[in-house]
């Protein structure tokens, strides 16, 4: 079982750039209330759960852009090959994914009982990309550590 569906290695750098820009934009959008004027667009009302099938209301898409960039960046990074992609790396990839899921839900479980109201919104927002982030941290730390040997 040597091949899995992975993008070529050259997608790592663009993926990192996309993720970084998404993270920066996201932090600015949430905490700095940053909104780009050119992203003020009319959306069909049914998307915003308002009455009316074809009429539109305005919405700013800066926050949507931020999340979109974060997700796209995470996917590009997660699913691109390492320089040498052999069975050991694939094994570590699987273990890291397992670890990331576990750590994510343990933290979420604890946060569920300790964090309330608006603060929990921040927890949930982070949780949207937490698993890929934990995976990337764990996976690359393991690879770096085995490189040191």
């Amino acid at each position: 079982m040597k091949t899995t569906i992975l993008l070529p290695h050259r997608f790592k750098t663009p993926g990192a750039l996309v993720l970084l820009s998404g993270l920066v934009l996201g932090v600015l959008a949430i905490f700095g209330n940053l909104e780009f004027d050119f992203l003020d667009v009319p959306l069909p009302k049914f998307l915003k759960q308002e009455q009316g099938l074809f009429s539109t209301t305005n919405n700013n898409l800066t926050d949507e852009l931020a999340l979109g960039l974060c997700i796209a960046g995470c996917l590009l990074l997660m699913f691109s090959r390492e320089k040498v992609e052999d069975e050991f790396v694939q094994h570590q990839r699987l273990l890291s994914l397992q670890w990331a899921v576990l750590v994510n839900y343990v933290i979420l479980f604890i946060a569920n009982w300790l964090v309330y109201d608006t603060n929990f919104f921040y927890v949930m927002t982070f949780n949207l990309i937490a698993i890929p982030l934990f995976f990337l941290l764990r996976f690359h730390w393991i690879l770096w550590r085995s490189n040191q040997n």
Binding site: V84, D86, S146, N147, N149
Partner: peptide, 16 residues
């Protein structure tokens, strides 16, 4: 063998 050096090291140290 066609693998990375990390793999050989991991095998020899019993980690993989």
């Amino acid at each position: 063998i066609g693998v990375s050096r990390q793999t050989i090291h991991a095998i020899e140290s019993g980690k993989y």
